[in-house]
């Protein structure tokens, strides 16, 4: 990923009023987090360069970020950017689940392209399991709730960047 692209991403985060963005492209991963009025980004280099080239077996997960830096950016103006993203809200009170069952993959991940009618999550109340389908198409920018946590009516669940 080029510096220019990273700068654009940081600008996106600070302008968009979102607090966290993760982008994955092949084996390259960058995550940008905003704390109050600061933007932090953590860039993970491709696995090939970060895994030590020794004969000793090492778990691949050790790949430490090679480059950590803090950049400052102006505080976000939430109202100016909400128009660019669509918030998908919970239609009901219940418990949010990210996958059909604990051993199955998540319905959606950050960065996924979603289509109208695609199942995004389950909200359960009284053992009624509700598969929530998307009414929009776009790309998941952020998942706003933790698995198995309670959600209120109208609570934002996902931020989606529309695709035209």
């Amino acid at each position: 990923m080029e510096l220019k692209e990273i700068k654009e991403l940081i600008k996106l985060v600070s302008d968009a009023g979102v607090t966290e963005v993760e982008v994955e492209r092949g084996d390259f991963k960058i995550s940008i987090k905003k704390t109050d009025d600061k933007v932090t980004y953590v860039q993970q280099a491709p696995m090939v360069t970060s895994v030590a080239m020794t004969e000793q077996a090492r778990p691949a997960s050790i790949s430490a970020p090679v480059n950590t830096e803090k950049l400052e950016a102006p505080a976000a103006k939430t109202e100016s950017v909400n128009g660019n993203f669509i918030t998908i809200k919970s239609p009901m009170i219940g418990t949010y689940y990210k996958s059909p069952s604990p051993d199955k993959p998540n319905f959606v991940q950050i960065g996924d392209e979603i289509k109208v009618g695609q199942v995004l999550c389950i909200v359960e109340a009284m053992k009624l399991f509700n598969e929530i389908e998307s009414e929009v198409s776009g790309r998941i920018v952020k998942i706003l709730v933790e698995n198995a946590s309670p959600v209120e009516y109208d609570q934002p669940l996902f931020l989606v960047e529309p695709i035209k």
Binding site: M126, K127, L128, N130, E131, E133
Partner: peptide
């Protein structure tokens, strides 16, 4: 037994599991 187990004399005799599909706020 809340929410939807059927019990008799301290024992479970039946259970229910409902799965809905929702589009937006419309139950399908």
């Amino acid at each position: 037994k809340w929410p939807n187990d059927l019990v008799v004399n301290g024992h479970k005799i039946g259970g229910i599991l409902i799965e809905n599909s929702l589009a937006g706020s419309q139950l399908k």
